[in-house]
Computed example of a mutant assay.
Amino acid sequence: MDFQLLEQRPSELCFPQLNSSCRKPTLHWSKAVLLTIVLFCISLITVALNILVIISVSHFRQLHTPSNILLLSLAVSDLLVGLLLMPLEIFRNTSCWVFGDLICSVYWYLSGNITSTSTGIIVLISVDRYVAICDPLHYPTRMTVVRVKLSVCLCWFYYIFYISLYLKDILIEPGRYNSCKGECVLVINDIAGIIDLVIAFIVPVSVIIVLYMRVFVVAVSQARAMRSCVRAVTLQHSLNQANKSELKAARTLGILVVVFLASFCPFYCYFFVGENVVSDSSAFFVIIAFYFNSFLNPMIYALFYPWFRNAVKLIITLQIFKYNFSNFLFSV
């Protein structure tokens, strides 16, 4: 029995009728309300924007390309972040956890699975751009829609298996790390933390950096070559236009990768130097910053992809319900 908890006034406890109850969060109610409103608005916008991405790529046949299939898969994981992970993380840190130990374990499992899958998809995006820029002649045969879909499915299944092993303790025994009722925490032991650091952070980030460094070098050389070609026949002009399109896509997806790493690195750096306890307020802001990446991704599409802006206009104005509008041609 925790005598310190018994000394608290009942109004300060999550469950006053239980001796093992946790204390209520100490954040002032006005700050808690403001923080909750702001973060829930971000969550709703994240859901709405990623639904628009999913509808756009799924509905319009012109957008059924390997690169866009990867963006579609990333949008699905971002949608789940905004729909499930953000609200539960907000609730977990601004009020007492009332959903029970089982839902707590499910939350941590989904959090690990969805965010890890996003990392895998970013790796696939880097591979896609690497092949498109560094080996453009073989790109149509190597990066087909079928192969990309298969790669995405394997990515999801791999991380389902990996996270099941990584978090097997809380899946077998939900709530094993909770010290009192009304709490939802995750404790990561040192060995599991090091393994996860290597598998989910060092390896994929290294692959992403190496591939994009290669893409950057080749893109710069191609840009210089195009600028040096003053005279060009029609065929050469069309090839240059294709190269410019690929370079533009590489630049946009490069921004996507940089933003992802900017959100991803603090998350792992914090838990690497911290005590591996996912419970305090500083951990909350690191996790929210990581989830915030799901809000930024569709913003990047809106800024740099004309097809996404045009598709959103068609969706909002309900023109997609017109006959044969799935064959609408976009300027990409």
Rank of each mutant, 00 (worst) to 15 (best):
I69M: 13
L70M: 09
L72R: 09
L74T: 10
L74E: 06
A75R: 01
D78T: 12
L80W: 03
L80E: 01
V81R: 00
G82L: 08
L83Q: 04
L83F: 14
L84D: 07
L84F: 13
L84N: 04
M86H: 01
M86W: 02
M86Y: 00
L88F: 08
F91E: 08
R92V: 05
S95M: 06
S95F: 05
C96A: 09
W97K: 00
V98K: 13
G100F: 04
D101T: 02
L102A: 15
I103F: 05
S105M: 06
V106L: 10
V106A: 09
Y107K: 03
W108D: 01
W108F: 11
L110C: 15
L110N: 06
G112K: 01
N113M: 11
T117K: 02
T117P: 14
T119F: 02
T119D: 10
I121N: 00
I121A: 05
I122V: 11
V123C: 14
L124C: 11
D128C: 01
D128K: 00
R129K: 08
A132V: 03
I133H: 07
C134V: 04
C134R: 01
C134N: 06
C134Q: 02
D135H: 12
P136Y: 01
P136A: 00
L137Y: 10
L137D: 15
L137P: 12
Y139W: 09
Y139I: 02
P140N: 02
T141W: 06
T144Y: 04
V145S: 15
V145Q: 08
R147L: 15
R147F: 12
V148N: 02
K149G: 10
S151V: 10
L154R: 02
C155V: 09
W156Y: 15
I160E: 09
